Amino acid sequence: MHVQQVSPEGDAATRDLANAVLALNPKPREVRWTSLSLCILDAVWSIGARYEAVVVPVVRTFATGFGLESPTVRADSPLGPDPLPLPALAGLGVGSLVDKTNRQRTSTRGGILKAEAALRHVAVFVEHDVTTLADAIELLSDSERLADVDSELRRIPGEGGSGIRRGYLWMLVGNDDVIKPDRMVLRWLRHHGVDVGPEGAREIIATLAASLTATIGTPVTPWEIDHAMWTAGRLLPPTRKRSP
């Protein structure tokens, strides 16, 4: 069967896809990490790892080691002081961070330790005077500084060509317009007849967000759609990309 390519112009296939997304009942973000340090660990350890079984326990165990018994809060909670500013994480060596997390690598083929990748992220942020979650949120509104930081993060091994890790990090910081169309999102789209890569998925989800916002009359963000697709995609069997 030929896999239909969905264009972002609002054709019938796009409307069908929008209805499928509505059926997922996308909802706003409910919780967030309290620290930029934890956002970085989440983004780095999410590379090729099961989120609930591996990533969340790694981040929570790390937070507990620093005395943070409640590393998450409701997403709509006021932003308080960052309980674990980056200098605390920057003071750790790779070996020490491995001991507090695990020995996973960014790739099974010559990838660096995720602990090293995380510390490289920290070094980039600290170099740009971004050491707290509040600093990172402020950075999102400064397009020139953001582009500089983003460019340096892109050079850290394990990033990949699609920028999924960086996009996910900015999502965790609080940018609901940036998404991470990873394999679960692409799997959900393919299940619905849409065979695209990460860039194509970004375009489609942005279009769907605008369309659903207009239809429902309340904001529907790309983050909400991405998360709903990702959650549903985890329940689907892996599919192979079909040839035209």
Rank of each mutant, 00 (worst) to 15 (best):
A118D: 07
F66R: 14
R60G: 04
R29Y: 05
G67Q: 10
G48P: 00
R103W: 00
F66V: 09
P85I: 10
Q5R: 15
I47Q: 09
G95Y: 01
P87H: 05
A49Q: 11
S107I: 00
L36Q: 09
L38E: 01
A53T: 12
A43D: 08
L68K: 09
G67T: 10
F62V: 02
A12C: 09
P26V: 04
A12Q: 12
P83I: 09
A12F: 11
Q4N: 12
W45T: 06
T108H: 05
S77A: 14
P87N: 06
V31W: 00
P71W: 04
T14W: 13
L68N: 03
T101M: 04
Y51Q: 09
V58M: 12
S96A: 14
L79Y: 10
R103V: 07
A118W: 04
I40A: 08
P8S: 11
G67S: 13
A90D: 12
A115T: 07
P57L: 01
T64V: 12
N19A: 15
R109Y: 09
L84F: 08
S37A: 15
G65D: 05
T72I: 11
R15K: 13
E9P: 04
A90E: 13
E9S: 14
N25V: 14
L92S: 06
S77Q: 12
L86A: 09
A20I: 07
V73H: 06
S96G: 03
S7V: 11
L92I: 08
S46H: 07
P83T: 01
A115F: 03
R32F: 05
W33V: 08
P57C: 00
W45C: 03
A53R: 15
T34K: 11
W45Y: 15
P83E: 05
V54F: 08
S77F: 01
D76R: 12
R15M: 13
N102K: 02
D16I: 04
D42R: 08
L86W: 01
E116P: 09
R32Y: 00
A90W: 04
P87I: 08
W33P: 00
N102H: 09
R103F: 02
A23P: 07
A13K: 13
L84K: 06
V73F: 03
C39M: 11
N19R: 15
K27E: 13
E116F: 08
P57T: 02
E30F: 05
E69V: 12
D76T: 12
P26I: 01
A63T: 06
L113D: 00
D82M: 00
R32E: 08
L24W: 07
A49H: 03
A88K: 12
R15V: 14
A18V: 12
A12T: 13
L41I: 09
S37Q: 06
V6I: 15
S35D: 07
G95T: 06
L92C: 11
T34G: 08
V58G: 04
R60C: 12
L92R: 06
A117L: 02
A75T: 04
I40K: 04
N19C: 14
L89C: 03
E52K: 13
V58D: 02
R105S: 04
A49S: 14
P28W: 03
S107R: 03
T14A: 13
N25A: 15
A13D: 13
N25W: 02
E52V: 02
P81C: 05
T106M: 01
L68I: 15
G91L: 06
P57R: 05
D76L: 11
G80M: 05
I40T: 07
T72H: 02
S46Q: 07
